[in-house]
């Protein structure tokens, strides 16, 4: 377990440090969402209507942007060879790296999303739903994105290919994430959206690390 945490801490430190993915992803997320009120105009009704979709699409794209170096940096500098020798199954190493990715991109995006809610004119009741939906949905993005990152780890400029592979997988997260915020705006309690997001996460949690480890093993040869 200490090895697992040590990998998480190191990756988070690297992501928050110079040249890391965190700042990039969060600034991209903020900028993209900010463009919508500027482009569409300040009609609160329209903005409130599209807010959940805009926030989720931007979060999805920002996550894609930060994913392509998730395993590639470790492959290129030889760290992957060493990570394959630690007393921890490669599946758990993969899970540790996905967790670090979520802490360094998903969590900051979750933290700034209320700010974007204000910008898009969300009503007061919607914020709880927005935060809950982001909390349940963004870990799935890191996990499913990790599969794409592992499959394209040896591809130069694999970012586009990565998006093509991962975006279709992420559609359910987008649909249920948007739905959860929509029902929160309408003042509805519960609904099926949050449990669906949790179910996706519950499926991705064991399956994604297993798939990632398989893809990485091919690249150790």
């Amino acid at each position: 377990m200490t090895v697992f945490l040590r990998i998480v801490v190191r990756d988070v430190r690297l992501a928050f440090g110079q040249g890391g993915a965190t700042v990039l992803a969060v600034v991209f997320f903020l900028l993209t969402v900010t463009l919508f009120p500027l482009g569409i105009g300040p009609e609160t009704g329209v903005l409130r209507r599209i807010a959940p979709g805009v926030i989720w699409v931007a979060a999805l794209l920002a996550a894609m942007l930060s994913l392509d170096r998730l395993f590639q940096a470790d492959l290129e500098d030889g760290s992957l060879d060493q990570l394959a020798l630690v007393p921890l199954p490669l599946e758990l190493v993969a899970a540790a790296k996905c967790l670090a990715h979520w802490i360094s991109t998903g969590l900051p995006m979750l933290a700034v999303s209320p700010l974007l809610g204000v910008l898009l004119g969300l009503n007061g009741e919607a914020y709880g739903g927005l935060l809950l939906a982001m909390a349940a949905g963004t870990p799935s993005l890191s996990l499913m994105g990790g599969i794409g990152a592992a499959l394209t780890v040896s591809v130069r400029r694999g970012g586009v290919l990565l998006s093509l592979l991962v975006l279709p997988l992420c559609v359910p997260v987008l649909v249920f994430g948007t739905g959860a915020v929509d029902s929160a705006i309408a003042g509805l309690e519960g609904g099926a959206h949050l449990p669906a997001l949790a179910a996706i996460l519950a499926a991705a949690l064991p399956l994604a690390p297993w798939a990632i480890a398989g893809a990485l093993r091919l690249n150790l040869e």
Binding site: V3, I7, R13, L14, G17, D77, G78, D81
Partner: peptide, 23 residues
């Protein structure tokens, strides 16, 4: 191997401490 598994952003001691701990 040919690749040194050294992260440029971390200090020399941090690089070694990480591998020493996990290996």
């Amino acid at each position: 191997g040919h690749l040194d598994a050294v992260k440029p952003a971390l200090s020399v001691a941090e690089n070694l401490a990480f591998w020493s701990d996990v290996l």
